[in-house]
């Protein structure tokens, strides 16, 4: 049921993803603001299948040279490729940002196989990689499946500065015009076999909602 309805290939499922900022209000209290968030879902067969996007429409938004999105997609498996459109919530003005604030990313994946995974996250500007983080995670058996957890991974300086600058733009259309050329590519690989387990292309706009960050997920196909 997960496949074609959630971010899941035949080998790995993304359970959760969030990028956040946390500020200590007093010694016992923290406030957390989610910039983007994919929460745990329990899809059923009555839920609609994911819409498809032709991957050629977004090639130039991601690295195109050796090891780029095109080459990765051709290597497959093609059921591991997804596009996530985020409407990011930048409205954290109620929280006092300062040297004590923490910017982090948390994510969780699950599989039925015990693997060691590497998670590469590339931040791209005008389709060119500017920074990459590579993390290795080991499986933990939980409730009959293997779970991989990246908990509170610190955001890099580039991203923190980017968010600061974005938040200070006076109009939403200006933020969206900057975000048009800002993308993130996350590739999860089986460390031992080098098989692609998941490849998620993230694109962004600023949220207009009062309910926080929103998103849409698409399958990437070549028609």
């Amino acid at each position: 049921v997960w496949q074609d309805r959630t971010i899941a290939s035949s080998k790995l499922r993304m359970l959760e993803f969030s990028a956040f900022m946390e500020v200590q209000r007093d010694p016992d209290n923290y406030s957390k603001h989610l910039f983007v968030h994919i929460g745990q879902t329990n899809p059923s067969y009555s839920d609609p299948l994911l819409e498809a996007v032709d991957i050629r429409q977004i090639y130039d938004k991601f690295p195109e040279k050796k090891g780029g999105l095109k080459e990765l997609y051709e290597k497959g498996p093609q059921n591991a490729f997804f596009l996530v459109k985020f409407w990011a919530d930048l409205n954290s003005s109620g929280m006092l940002d300062g040297p004590g604030s923490f910017y982090g990313v948390s994510s969780q994946y699950s599989s039925i196989e015990n693997m060691t995974i590497t998670v590469s996250t590339k931040v791209c500007s005008f389709g060119k990689q500017v920074v990459e983080k590579v993390e290795t995670e080991y499986a933990r058996m939980e409730g009959g499946k293997y779970v991989y957890r990246i908990h509170r991974s610190p955001m890099c300086e580039y991203m923190i500065n980017f968010i600061h600058k974005l938040k200070h733009l006076p109009e939403k259309y200006m933020m969206n015009s900057v975000l048009e050329n800002f993308t993130i590519l996350q590739v999860v690989t089986n460390r031992d076999t080098q098989e692609t387990l998941l490849c998620i292309a993230f694109v962004f706009e600023v949220s207009n909602s009062e309910h926080g960050a929103q998103y849409h997920v698409y399958r990437l196909v070549k028609e």
Binding site: E51, V53, Q57, D60, Q214
Partner: peptide, 24 residues
């Protein structure tokens, strides 16, 4: 062909790509 420099709005993307979901 190359789609470089083409604004996202002019690409072939589903209508939902431009519709922010209303629910949290």
């Amino acid at each position: 062909g190359s789609v470089e420099q083409v604004p996202m709005r002019k690409r072939q993307l589903p209508a939902s790509f431009w519709e922010e979901p209303r629910l949290s």
